[in-house]
Amino acid sequence: MALVVLAFDLLLAAALIWLAWQATRAADLFHAVVSFIVFGLLMALAWVRLEAPDVALAEAAIGAGATGALLLSALDRLARRPRRHAPLYEPGTAWGFWLPAGSALLAMLTLAAWNLPAPGLGNEILASLSASGVEHAVTAVLLNFRALDTLLEIGVLLLAAVVIWALGQAPPPLVPSMPSPALPALGRLLFPIFVLVAAYLLWRGSHGPGGAFPAGAVFGAGGILMLLAGARPWIRSSEHGPWRLILSLGMAVLLAAGVAGTLSGQDFFQYPKGTAASFILVLEVAAGLSIALLIFALYLRGKPREHGSWGAAE
């Protein structure tokens, strides 16, 4: 059986390398993007093999799902333009350079990596887990031990959305060449399931793989699907509506939790004794909501309209 597992790993690695090669070298841009999406899919299998279900979940929701939708949508602007007959790659970067340089780098990295004892922090986590307020170690690390990273991480998401808004208006969506009647039905059918699964993942977070990030991503993906199914983007950039507030809610709440620690005379982000569990629950819900909207906002690639509709006539 060990042989079968080894064969599985080898095959997976070979497929990943092949796909990475295709994603960087394929002559056709769409070919490259599909290769990259499949790369993400197989990467999730690799995470599963490496006993990292949390990472697999995030990769499935964010890596393969949301990123795939982003890349495919970006093609709409890029694919329309006529292809220029220029070389796709820089000249002069011949194999003479890359083969030796690549092999040297590879040898160096592998040598270094084999020498790692990888002591890990597993024991430290086990020792502190009971005080963290949650049963699942990854959630404990994200929202308690290293909550500062998570605050900045949600900040990065929010910041990315602000940057994208600052760059200009969202491009109006293209009208499909042949609208299908099945699409709106699909949206109506699936959206409740998206919401349900997102809520389930959020709830799972405290004692198993799940939590705000996959949940938010699934929720956001549901929004993207609704948009594709013909719904109007309901998010508005108007400064009067609630949207800007909800977008920044996750970061604001995390920041408040951090400051609360300082104000009560303790460390930044130190939850009062015994209240860690409820703090983390509130943080998860707020963060999940924000993340969903932020991922949706990232997908729009620009600032949505302030008011009014976004019909095909505009």
Partner: peptide
Amino acid sequence: VLMLIASATAAGLIARTALAR
């Protein structure tokens, strides 16, 4: 069921668009 829905819609969409193109 989710995969059924996904593949049924996708199949219909792809076929229609392919014809249209």
